[in-house]
Nucleic acid binder design. Structure first.
Lengths: 162, 162
DNA sequence: TATTGTTATACTCTATAACTATA
DNA sequence: TATAGTTATAGAGTATAACAATA
């Protein structure tokens, strides 16, 4: 049988930080998705709740802008969260076109539970590293995020900037 | 106007490595997608070519298994690459059910060009870091990938393991 | 005239099952 | 009976345009 012509002068993807980051980043997202599933929400929904928790009463448009997605997409996200009893659409006091989105007590429980799950995941992913290595990694990653021009805590996966 | 009730005792997503990795990883993937676009391929296709470059003549099934996706999905990928003149489906010498997939000279140019683009992206993303910081980052990420059980160079985004 | 929220539509990806031809 | 490749279909996710109510 003709042996396959092996060639080893090939792009070494696995030694590049950009590839490793992409690999680990997707893995991290997939794990978090699986961890949140029993709570009935996705990382996207969790991100909206977390953002709301910092300032309730925002309009859908404000939330969409803050999270970098289109207001059309926010409709479905809020529909979902409302159907699960995690947010309420109240009338906006100043603008009768807009809703003021508020968290329910149930949402605060979900946020706390998700936070615990994120802690467990952090432990599982970084378990091999020493405290110093963890600190160095987080410091470096934080610098890279800042230099990329992202606002802290805003994940690009929510939408692709409109 | 009623001030929104700010709350700052909230999950600190942005200080967790898992969140930062997810952010940077997706960013890295999006940049690479944009960089490869002028070449007419996506990171997925590039990954198939890169894998093929290490060992030509593989069957679609072997490629699918190696890259962690279903053979059904490989059909479309190979269709695409074949239509663009990047791979050829030759008859397999030992198994008349299977194809032996081979790269074209054009594919080797695409691989080289993509490799250059990946270098440029690495430079753009890590530009702020010193040589020591880069080395430390890559070493740490490599350990994390290994501990996660991935094979080097196999990206989980290609498919979700079947 | 511009903006908030909504709906409808289309397009991409992915997942699944079922079919054929070979083994 | 199992395997390689194919096809068809359905579902999730996302992007775009157009609409009604209000500013």
């Amino acid at each position: 049988m003709p042996a396959p012509d092996d060639q080893h002068d090939v792009p070494a993807l696995e030694t590049r930080a950009s590839f490793l980051l992409s690999q680990l980043g997707l893995q991290s997202a997939q794990r978090f998705t699986a961890a949140l599933a029993p709570l009935g929400i996705t990382p996207n929904r969790f991100g909206v709740l977390a953002h709301l928790a910092r300032q309730e009463g925002r309009t859908q448009q404000e939330l969409a802008t803050a999270l970098g997605l289109h207001r059309n997409s926010m409709v479905g996200l809020i529909d979902d969260l409302e159907a699960r009893g995690l947010v309420e659409r109240r009338r906006h006091p100043d603008d009768r076109r807009a809703y003021a989105i508020h968290l329910t007590p149930s949402a605060r429980e979900v946020l706390a539970a998700g936070d615990r799950l994120a802690d467990e995941q952090e432990e599982a992913m970084l378990g091999e590293l020493s405290a110093e290595e963890r600190a160095a990694l987080i410091a470096t990653l934080t610098r890279l995020v800042a230099s990329a021009g992202y606002r802290a805590g805003v994940h690009p996966g929510l939408g692709s900037a409109h």
